[in-house]
């Protein structure tokens, strides 16, 4: 058995792998969670983002392959998300229609469409998004690879503070928060909860579609039917973990992405037991944090008051 210390980068390699994996694996989480955050701020839950993510991944890959332009693929992924979001936004606001149920139906519908139309695109190799190389100074190929950063990640990282500012300092942000906290009060202010929620859900799905594009055009950079290992559903938990704060969504996405990278990285230096339980670590952590921070006396700070309640 060779000890980790003998390896090329050893534990430094693990740190590097986690750092790199955090950015690579965190990117789809980032977009989906920001999208879900936007959706939930308006008082609706969209579990269907799993389907949106798959649809986004498929359409981005397909368009990139057909036109040769990955950026066009990203745009189309967003638009396909927008379309699915429109269905969810409209349907989940009908009286007595539960948004959780619609979300699960949308997972089936969205993934069905993505798989159906994605068949011809599994084999071909589509042009990938370019990466920005920050490691010109280093001769080490591992460092170079780790510091190849996707513009999508940068875009997402910028989007988080923007959304934070948007929610706290703009009129539209206020509308969304008002609708999310109390549709009745919002209506009294002359805001249409239906329209605001519709737009929020659609915009959120647009972002989730882009998250899908980051899966198929950046990392891992393929289109297969198993490309999303539940990131879309996880986003719902992630947003709660982040307390509906876009900046914390960024941190939480990095944490979840890093946790994904940690398993293989640790195995590569010799720690191998219990990888199934390890893979479940993000879920356990989220649950523990929810248990610790919730209490019947007060609702979660930042929780939209009308979240998940039927009162459209």
């Amino acid at each position: 058995m060779s000890s980790p210390a003998e390896s090329a980068l050893g534990w430094w390699g693990v740190l590097l792998a986690i750092l790199a994996g955090t950015m690579r694996g965190g990117t789809p989480f980032l977009f989906v969670s920001l999208g879900e955050c936007l959706t939930e701020k308006s008082g609706k839950i969209n579990l269907g983002l799993e389907g949106t993510l798959l649809m986004g991944a498929m359409s981005a890959y397909a368009i990139s392959y057909l036109t040769g332009s990955p950026w066009l693929g990203v745009l189309v992924a967003g638009i396909s998300g927008l379309a699915l979001g429109a269905i969810h936004g409209w349907l989940s606001q009908q009286p007595r229609v539960n948004d959780v149920a619609v979300g699960i139906a949308m997972i089936i519908f969205g993934s069905g469409l993505a798989f159906f139309f994605g068949k011809p695109f599994i084999k071909p190799t589509a042009p990938q998004l370019p990466t920005i190389d920050l490691a010109g100074w280093s001769q080490n190929p591992a460092v170079e690879a780790a510091l190849k950063i996707s513009p999508l990640f940068i875009l997402g990282a910028l989007l988080a503070p923007f959304l934070h500012w948007f929610f706290s300092s703009t009129r539209w942000g206020l509308y969304i928060r008002a609708v999310g906290d109390s549709p009745a009060a919002a209506r009294a202010m002359g805001i249409s909860p239906f329209k605001v929620r519709m737009l929020s859900v659609m915009a959120g799905s647009f972002l989730a579609g882009i998250g899908g594009a980051s899966l198929s055009l950046y990392y891992p950079g393929v289109w297969t039917e198993r490309i999303s290992s539940g990131q879309g559903l996880m986003a719902v938990a992630l947003v709660i973990f982040a307390r509906w704060n876009p900046l914390q969504c960024l941190l939480a996405s990095l944490l979840f992405g890093g946790a994904q990278a940690l398993g293989p990285a640790l195995q590569s230096v010799g720690i191998k037991e219990g990888y199934y339980l390890f893979n479940a670590a993000p879920y356990i952590l989220t649950l523990v944090i929810m248990i610790l921070t919730c209490s019947p006396q007060r609702t979660l700070t930042g929780a939209p008051g009308a979240l998940g309640q039927e009162d459209a």
Partner: peptide, 26 residues
């Protein structure tokens, strides 16, 4: 031969992570 088990038959993200982390280990 360094081996990394992903735990399931099709986990593209984990497979990519495993491949990358092994590349990092030379």
């Amino acid at each position: 031969t360094q081996v990394i088990f992903t735990g399931d038959w099709s986990l593209p993200l984990k497979e990519a992570e495993a491949a990358n982390s092994m590349a990092d280990q030379d």
